[in-house]
Design a protein around this nucleic acid. Structure first.
Length: 498
RNA sequence: GCCCCCAUCGUCUAGCGGCCCAGGACGUGGCCCUCUCAAGGCCAAAACAGGGGUUCGAAUCCCCUUGGGGGCACCA
């Protein structure tokens, strides 16, 4: 196969604003974006909102927020415009109608006057007989002139595609090769509803043609109607785009695709499949992108990638057609990797809102100092709050039990605290460099383990058993507060020891 | 029920007829480093669903079985 990957493509991401933006959408958008960038083509955002009944307020905003946050930029779209607009299907109703009529004139479509009641009855009967539910073609057999008269008279109707009844239709998917279906298995799908709005099957094909889309990368839920789409395009005599049908995401267990309930369960577990949730949870776009891009695309080695590196290495032909189970622990891994790749300043500015959201007043100077301390020990930005929130508190409240290291008693802990206090108080300034050597000497002198002595201090100064490195932490906290906190700990230990 | 798609370690995947008694990553276990927690380094266990073909040779091509997934709306 010739390497067509470098000729510029025009691709689109065409979500319908009917719900929240989830991983599947993010990945579809990303793959489209990568192909566009890879080939120097254009990436178009098109909103498919022809079904006003399913309109969800705020869905489009969330989608755009999510895309912006991920850093997936589009060249043409409802907000930025472009030469092939409008990019919102609700603004293109007349266009679809015109093309639908053209299909009717060409004999590839016909008006259907059947009521929903009749259709429901038909379907029920077919299901009862365990036959595939399909339109029986009653109106297809109508005389075209009579049908036109009834339409002109204002009789309610839909427009159906006149699917060939014999032979087969062969379509080609880049990842799956040829797909051949018998035409008898296809239905006379509705193209335009009785309210005059086009359905996806017509609207998307018309838009893709008008917007000069060369490659359609979409979810595999479109596979069953893929032949229909090709038939529609062929009926118009248009050139078909290259089709790429992606796999679906399965729930973490690998058993079945993500359902609403699974999505809710993930949120309970502190995870989510929704991109704005991931953002609020403290995941960073680099991590999410890296995670998502690898679910359905394999890189042999060096799989920690930036968006630019993805563009460099992306090849549509190597996408995987098989379903992929969502694996959240891998998200943690990539997020941590990318957090560690951030510059200290960058990480500081990203982590700041999380401290503020937790109610802390953030001193930028302190923030700048603690960032390198937490960088390699947080998986999400939110983790920083638990790990380093104490830096922004005036007081720290260790639990008495935690003040006593395993294997020692309160009296011994008190002894450690007192002697540590003397060492630290003797220093004019508590820096990591100045404090560590004498403290190590104390450990030696007392014949204890470093972990025991430092453990008491850690809990006293940070209020936590787990913290950033002790001496660096004390340096940031500052001499006065360190001494004060050790004194407090001593008081607590005195009570316990007596 | 009918139609369509998919099938390599638990998971995501590399592999596109010989380089593979199958490579990487996550996770898991062990070791090292170590003031906690991490990070990092090293090591280990772990897969070609089954059966037929084609071929000198198959994880790679074909068929069947099994398993999984998707779809069957005046939703997208």
């Amino acid at each position: 196969m010739a390497d067509t990957s470098l000729s510029p493509v025009r691709v689109r991401f065409a979500p319908s604003p009917t719900g929240r933006m989830h991983l599947g959408s993010a990945r579809t958008a990303l793959y489209n974006y990568l192909l566009a960038r890879r080939t120097g083509g254009q990436f178009i955002l098109r909103i498919e909102d022809t079904d006003r009944k399913r309109f969800v307020p705020g869905a489009e905003e969330e989608l755009i927020d999510g895309m912006h946050w991920l850093g997936i930029q589009w060249d043409e779209g409802p907000d930025v415009g472009g030469p092939y607009g409008p990019y919102r299907q609700s603004e293109r109703k007349e266009i679809y109608l015109e093309y639908a009529h053209r299909l009717v004139e060409m004999g590839h479509a016909y008006p259907c006057f059947c009521s929903r009641e009749r259709l429901n009855r038909l379907r029920q009967e077919q299901q009862r007989q365990k036959r595939p539910p399909r339109y029986d073609g009653l109106c297809r057999r109508l005389d075209p002139d009579e049908a036109a008269r009834r339409v002109a008279a204002g009789e309610p109707h839909v427009i159906r595609f006149k699917t060939p009844k014999e032979g087969t239709t062969t379509v080609h998917d880049l990842l799956r090769g040829e797909i051949v279906v018998r035409n008898e298995t296809l239905d006379d799908y509705i193209l335009v509803k009785s309210d005059g709005w086009a359905l996806y099957h017509l609207a998307a094909m018309v838009d893709d043609h008008l917007m000069k889309i060369t490659h359609v990368i979409r979810g595999s839920e479109w596979l069953p109607t893929f032949p229909l789409h090709a038939l529609i395009i062929r009926a118009f005599g248009w050139e078909e785009p290259t089709w790429v049908h992606l796999s679906v995401f399965l729930k973490p267990s690998g058993k079945g695709k993500m359902s609403k309930r699974d999505a809710a369960q993930a949120i309970k577990d502190g995870r989510s499949i929704f991109v704005t949730d991931l953002r609020d949870l403290g995941y960073i776009p680099e991590g999410v992108l890296n995670w998502v891009v690898l679910m359905g695309w394999g890189v042999a080695e060096d799989d920690v990638l930036t968006l630019d590196e993805m563009v460099e290495r992306f090849d549509v032909r190597h996408l995987s057609p098989s379903p992929a189970a969502i694996n959240f622990s891998k998200l943690d891994h990539f997020n941590g990797k990318h957090i560690r790749r951030l510059s200290v300043d960058e990480l500081a500015t990203r982590v700041k809102p999380f401290f503020e959201r937790a109610g802390y007043v953030v001193d930028d100077d302190v923030l700048r100092k603690i960032t390198p301390l937490i960088q390699e020990r947080i998986v999400t930005l939110e983790d920083a709050v638990d790990m380093a929130g104490f830096f922004f508190r005036d007081e720290v409240t260790p639990s008495p039990e935690e003040l006593v290291p395993k294997g020692l008693d309160a009296a011994q802990a008190l002894d450690i605290a007192r002697r540590s206090y003397n060492v630290l108080a003797s220093l004019p300034e508590i820096t990591a460099e100045a404090a560590e050597p004498p403290m190590r000497a104390l450990v030696e002198e007392m014949g204890l383990k470093a972990r025991q002595v430092f453990g008491v201090l850690r809990v006293a100064v940070t209020g936590q058993r787990v913290s950033p490195p002790l001496f660096e932490s004390m340096e940031v906290v500052g001499r006065e507060k360190v001494l004060e906190r050790v004194r407090n700990a001593m008081a607590m230990l005195e009570k316990m020891a007596s």
